[in-house]
Amino acid sequence: MKLILSGVTGFIGHQVLVQALLSPESITSIIVLSRRVLPDSCPKDPRITTLVLSDADFLSYPPSVLSKLHGASACIWALGIKLADAEAHKRVTVDYTAAAARAFAALSPPEGSAKFRFLFLSGALAVSDPDARVLFLDDMRKLKGEGEKQVMEIAKENSRVFEAVVARPGMVHALGLSLTGILMALLPGDMAGVKVDTLADALVGAAVEGWEEVGNKTWSNGELVRRGREVAAKRNA
């Protein structure tokens, strides 16, 4: 299958790319959408093609870009932005996300694929109600919620050819032993967080195989942990 990724220069997106490359039989081509040339720290593999897009491209997807995405079956959207004003956050979190979802919903699905799968990386602290009173990170959390809303509305409007998952992980911690990871593992339920490779496995597994439930889904941290562990167990069996 042909898979589209965004945000691979970030902490989570980088690991998504790493885990995707562990599926040599399932994933035959990876198109990375990026705002800049990938650093040397990113994995190298002949299956990877990087498209460096301008702001206008991320908002409109001209034919020159869409032609290179033809035949893709799924996208894991992990693009984010740090230390920016509210306008920049809205453009990347909401506008870029909605433009991508609309563009991919219009792609002709490859033979044998009933629907294009779009997985949007959100967060456990996202706030869906724009009028809600939020004690901290107000703009960022509400913009994540607006991004979720846009994705789900586009999925509903294009339900014949497009389906979506909103992933809401809790605290995401790095590989290996760390004080943060140890402390998070002691917390109950969704508060326990998720290791970055487990989260990436959950997203890649859903992009490749879909999900058994009918319709669009929002997955909590606990669901992502369960799915990620299942993918890893299957790969290591």
Score class of each variant (00 low, 15 high):
K2L: 03
K2S: 09
K2V: 00
L3W: 08
I4C: 03
I4K: 04
I4F: 06
L5I: 12
G7P: 11
T9P: 07
G10N: 05
G10I: 07
F11E: 02
G13R: 04
G13Q: 07
V18N: 09
Q19I: 13
P24W: 02
I27A: 04
T28I: 07
I30G: 06
V32R: 12
R35Q: 08
L38Q: 05
P39S: 08
P43V: 08
P43E: 08
D45A: 05
D45E: 05
R47S: 09
S54F: 06
A56M: 11
L59Q: 14
Y61C: 03
Y61W: 07
P63G: 03
S64W: 12
V65I: 15
K68V: 03
K68S: 14
A74S: 13
W77F: 13
G80F: 01
K82H: 15
A84G: 12
D85K: 09
K90Q: 13
V92Y: 00
T93H: 12
V94M: 05
D95V: 10
Y96V: 00
T97C: 11
T97F: 00
A98R: 14
A99P: 10
A99H: 10
A101H: 05
A103I: 06
A105N: 07
A106Y: 06
L107A: 02
S108F: 03
G112H: 10
G112K: 09
K115L: 02
R117W: 04
R117Y: 04
F118G: 02
L119P: 06
A124H: 02
A126W: 02
A126S: 15
V127H: 09
S128C: 01
S128G: 15
S128H: 10
D129E: 11
V134R: 00
V134K: 03
L135C: 11
D138T: 15
R141N: 05
K142Q: 06
G145R: 06
E148C: 07
K149T: 15
Q150E: 15
V151D: 05
E153C: 03
I154L: 04
I154M: 10
I154T: 04
I154G: 07
K156M: 10
E157F: 01
N158Q: 06
F162I: 03
E163K: 14
V165A: 05
V165D: 01
V165L: 09
A167D: 08
R168H: 06
M171N: 11
V172N: 02
H173V: 12
H173T: 13
L175I: 11
G176P: 07
L177W: 13
S178T: 12
S178N: 12
G181D: 10
I182M: 15
L183E: 09
L187V: 05
L187S: 07
G189S: 05
G189T: 09
G193V: 01
V194N: 02
V194D: 01
D197V: 01
T198M: 00
A202V: 03
L203T: 07
L203D: 05
V204I: 14
G205T: 07
G205S: 08
A206T: 12
V208Y: 01
E209L: 12
G210M: 01
W211C: 00
E212P: 06
E212K: 14
V214Q: 14
N216Q: 06
N216P: 02
K217P: 03
K217R: 14
S220F: 02
N221W: 00
G222D: 08
R227N: 11
R229G: 06
E230M: 13
K234E: 12
A237H: 12
